[in-house]
Amino acid sequence: MAFGNSADVMASKTDGATPIGGRDAATEAVISARNLDLTFQTNDGPIHALKDVNLDINKGEFVSFIGPSGCGKTTFLRVMADLEQPTGGTVTVNGVSPQEARRSRAYGYVFQAAGLYPWRTIGGNIRLPLEIMGISKAEQAERVARVLELVELAGFEKKFPWQLSGGMQQRASIARALSFDADILLMDEPFGALDEIVRDHLNEQLLKLWARTRKTVAFVTHSIPEAVYLSTKIVVMSPRPGRITDVIDSPLPHDRPLEIRETPEFLEVAHRVREGLRAGHADV
């Protein structure tokens, strides 16, 4: 793990202009942020959404970003996805700039709302990115079947979104993000709008899915139990300016039944996250 401000070597490479410099970092760090700054200019003056953020996400890790609203966790995710442009510092995804990574379809992005098109069936929705990427009809069908099975929605291909529950819709949206086989999965509070029971179930499924696909996951949440249950690494953030206050490597084993949330180890990590959140809040 390379968290800290000492990033002299990495800082020398800029927005993918020297891809060779990024290549050896990519062998372990899939996503790497150095001295990242982002200031939004609004009518009420500048808002410092991210300040001096440094982070490495390694291949196969499940990293959660947690913090109160306004701490920049979603902004950080959107920077990785090339949906926001940083005003300072650098980010690399797979060793290249976020823009190049987006163009090479390096990541799947799951939004807070499922965002399925009401005029397309579940199968049609999952086919959508594949159509855009120009994948052959036969392979589209094969991939749709495969990802639907991954999220346990086999048999729902011909249904329209309104015929599915909120949890099932969100699973379909995850299937859609998985359909084009990107190695990175960026998830922005995907279960935020769902109730506790559905959420537990989806968390369990997501862990299984992660174990099967070995993807690198960046996951934004504001739920402490969710962050601790899912992650191999928890990034605690705090607002005004948005920054990282703590990075916790989870000591929990890879195999995690839901009951693990009752164990002392789990509670200890949760406690540390809570402390981190409180500390971040105190020095505002």
Partner: peptide, 16 residues
């Protein structure tokens, strides 16, 4: 905005 962002993450062209 979310649906348009989504299209962007797939690197969809304006025509698409």
């Amino acid at each position: 905005a979310m649906q348009l962002d989504q299209m962007r993450t797939w690197h969809a062209s304006a025509a698409q």
